[in-house]
């Protein structure tokens, strides 16, 4: 199925969960990333159980602490 990840169309297997997508996308800090799907935040506890659907728009929001 096709979804959009960070603005880019991607094909992922059916029934991919958000947690799986985080690993598929090689997120650098998988435990510390905020996920939004279709402009709504997904609670961290729901990453494992949330299954992506065709056309979902997924954004990863990363901690960026530098300023030094």
């Amino acid at each position: 199925m096709n979804i959009i990840v960070a603005g880019v169309k991607k094909e992922v297997p059916e029934n991919t969960t958000v947690k799986e997508l985080i690993y598929l996308e090689n997120v650098e800090t998988p435990d510390y990333v905020t996920v939004s799907i279709n402009d709504e935040f997904l609670m961290k506890a729901q990453q494992e159980t949330t299954v992506l659907r065709e056309g979902d728009n997924v954004e990863f929001l990363y901690f960026m602490g530098g300023g030094c």
Binding site: E28, T29, Y32, L61, F63, G65, G67
Partner: peptide, 13 residues
């Protein structure tokens, strides 16, 4: 971002 990540969990500049 809810709360600060634990020390050293996220790289700093």
């Amino acid at each position: 971002f809810h709360e600060p990540p634990p020390k050293n969990a996220v790289p700093t500049c």
